[in-house]
Design a protein around this nucleic acid. Sequence first.
DNA 1: CAAGAACCGGAGATGGTGCCTCGACTTCTT
DNA 2: AAGAAGTCGAGGCACCATCTCCGGTTCTTG
Lengths: 237, 237
Amino acid sequence: MTRDAAPAAPARPLRRDAELNRRRILESARAVFGKRGLEATLDDVAHHAGLGVGTVYRRFPSKEHLVEAMFVEQLQEIADLAEQALSAEDPWDGFVGFVWRTVELHSADRGLREIMLSKAFGHEHVAEVKARMVPLITRLVERAQESGQLRADVVPTDLPLIHQMVGAAVEYTSAVEPHLWRRCLALILDGLRAEPGRATELPHPGLDQAEIDQAMCAWRQPRHPHPATPPTPRTKQ
Amino acid sequence: MTRDAAPAAPARPLRRDAELNRRRILESARAVFGKRGLEATLDDVAHHAGLGVGTVYRRFPSKEHLVEAMFVEQLQEIADLAEQALSAEDPWDGFVGFVWRTVELHSADRGLREIMLSKAFGHEHVAEVKARMVPLITRLVERAQESGQLRADVVPTDLPLIHQMVGAAVEYTSAVEPHLWRRCLALILDGLRAEPGRATELPHPGLDQAEIDQAMCAWRQPRHPHPATPPTPRTKQ
DNA sequence: CAAGAACCGGAGATGGTGCCTCGACTTCTT
DNA sequence: AAGAAGTCGAGGCACCATCTCCGGTTCTTG
């Protein structure tokens, strides 16, 4: 799809150093937006890449454009995941596997989660890929229901809701126990079973009081100075 | 600062009009923080009350103090709820009833949710009440487990996590379908049952594609101008 | 090895926000 | 009627993010 509108007229290739920096920017954007979410600043991205802000703006007209450029590819991959899940032997496994893998991606990349669950970022490209996913997910749900394993009153739009809920758990606890989301997701998936064989053992121990306190301290802390994402070490400046 | 330290010496009662305004402020604060969360401005609260900002600051030294004053009472009530739940006949009903009622409160009052789930707002008073709740909730969980109805691998600190997750669903969808959280919570509660009798019918229909799109548009929208909470109509100025 | 096009850096212009103060003015109480 | 108490809201202050500008640097090409 990325046969980008520009009809194969790459105008003029970038100068070698510029091309390198372009890649550094994308790389840093992934790291920074992944950790801090889309609210991170282009200044942050630039600094993380060891570059000046001006350089970033020379390459990407605006933050939106950079975000768009970064995520289209990743969204495609998620759509591919859905397609693969559709051809899983067991419909329930396909469904659960898809949910599990996507949440895993979200847990590792806050920006990706925000792009997926909000229409407030990105442009047409992002919207297109998302549109592609709708029928896939619908089918995934139907298939699991037809096989009698997914409860019948679930609906495809419940999936973003689940992502939203588990994503909230990720944000709440990732500083304390980065894998706790597994516990939350397992719980929800148990609730999705049509005939709950019996509860599967939760895949991660719960928090103790000190840990939950720590999570509560970090949440919604009104702007403290950012810990300053360290610039990628660079042998040569 | 407020002479207060003096034990039972209310210094001097407020002037009649001042006392009235004080109540208006608290009232408006409840409305504004309830709808927009703790990020709302004292200017907003003042405007909603039909008063000047200065008036608010004359009565409450800072936003923090106002928040503290507002919520201590409500937190007490939640702790009371937990106490009552402990004396329910059926331990499972007690547990579920408590969760259900507290989430209901959170869904109606965003500020309350934020106070409950974060240590970043409020002072000692808030912390005290929360401390009171810990053993109650622990007991609530244990009791439901002892009766064999709540799965054994659940832990008291899972409760804030559940609140966090359902709260996220509330924020995501409240503009579209204010009661959708019931669906989400029911799902999770089904996952909490030790021996899932069978899935309870979900108490609220799922969203259709248009509705979820709408929710996605509203979420994380980077600062649009606030719809301006209308001031409470006031017969007499 | 020029020369000049392309690129880089980062201070700062711009436009925005939220918390809270201050002093001229109004209302209540005694 | 006097003065204590209360009110108002513009604006001070401090903060923040996006994006521009231009002197100086680096690459490429003939």
